[in-house]
């Protein structure tokens, strides 16, 4: 039993990465109808941002946690203004290709600068482990989970308790109707994109102390995150977070009890969910 709980908890920790990434993808998709293929590359850039700050400026983890997401969010808003925005009126396929291209460019630039092997990052902000009653767990992992939950809750509060959040939710759920009420949803497109980018960068910084930092780290992860978003329901903010933590737990338990299925379980679940609820667990079917 203890081992089951321990593994489930561990699943929540890896789920916290899925949740942060899926949350960003979901708000971006909801607001722009763009599937952001560069999301994995932003996660990678986030981790490399932490490495770069430590190597070149001697700034540790806390600085990275503050500066890197903000810097990448700004870069994201610029990319949205200069590139993505221009293609929004066209078929979504154009932005699909554009963001995919951006991802490849980022990945290869990193490879040119750092090579393909992993980079060291020795700046874990907390070490040692917590006694959680039934079992011990590394402090840093617990911190990651805690921060991710706090961020997800904050986003939820932002969306449900503020006027901006209401507008964004309205724009996500009923874009035509919202515009018909005379609300300029276009104003919010760029900030929302930057915000989603910032969340991915935050996940990247959080990954640096506990995962291998290399140019391929995001490409491996993003496929799973897409599955998470589809399971949660495309554009459903709540669904993406719930699915993120659930998939994390399932993958961890799958590793233990059904190692053969550990890599396929996510996609099996996706297939089942799509069969029963084509719009995902919390998605709404669109009637166009």
């Amino acid at each position: 039993m203890t081992s089951f709980l321990q593994q489930a908890f561990n699943g929540l920790v890896s789920g916290s990465f899925y949740a942060l990434l899926a949350l960003g993808l979901a708000v971006i998709f909801g607001m722009l109808r763009v599937v952001n293929f560069a999301h994995g590359a932003i996660y990678t850039l986030g981790a490399f941002g932490a490495v770069w700050l430590a190597d070149s400026a001697g700034l540790g983890f806390w600085w990275a946690l503050l500066l890197v997401p903000v810097a990448l969010a700004i870069a994201g808003t610029l990319a949205e203004r200069l590139l993505i925005h221009r293609l929004l009126a066209l078929d979504p396929l154009y932005n699909f290709l554009l963001t995919f291209g951006i991802a490849l460019v980022c990945q290869d630039l990193l490879r040119m600068r750092y090579g393909s092997h992993s980079q060291p990052y020795e700046h874990a902000p907390v070490t040692g482990s917590f006694d959680l009653g039934l079992f011990e767990f590394p402090r840093y992992q617990v911190f990651t989970l805690g921060l991710s939950v706090v961020v997800c809750l904050a986003v939820w509060l932002l969306l449900t308790r503020t006027r901006i959040g209401t507008i964004v939710r309205a724009a996500i759920e009923r874009p035509e109707l919202t515009r018909a009420f005379g609300i300029d949803t276009g104003r919010w497109v760029t900030p929302v994109f930057g915000f989603g980018v910032g969340l991915a960068a935050l996940a990247g910084v959080l990954a640096a102390p506990m995962r291998a930092v290399n140019s391929g780290m995001g490409a491996d992860l993003i496929i799973t995150v897409f599955a998470v978003v589809v399971i949660g329901g495309l554009g459903s903010v709540f669904g993406s977070v719930v699915a993120g933590f659930t998939i994390g737990m399932l993958a961890a338990l799958g590793n233990l009890y059904f190692p053969v299925l550990s890599q396929t379980s996510v996609y099996l679940l996706m297939a089942v969910v799509l069969l029963i609820r084509p719009a995902g667990l919390f998605g709404k079917e669109e009637h166009v």
């Binding site: 391929g216 780290m217 961890a252």
Partner: peptide, 20 residues
Amino acid sequence: KDPTPFPSDDFATFLLKAPG
């Protein structure tokens, strides 16, 4: 002995299993 997914960024499952 356990096979691990490839590639993988999370090995905690096996690290938690080891002491038990």
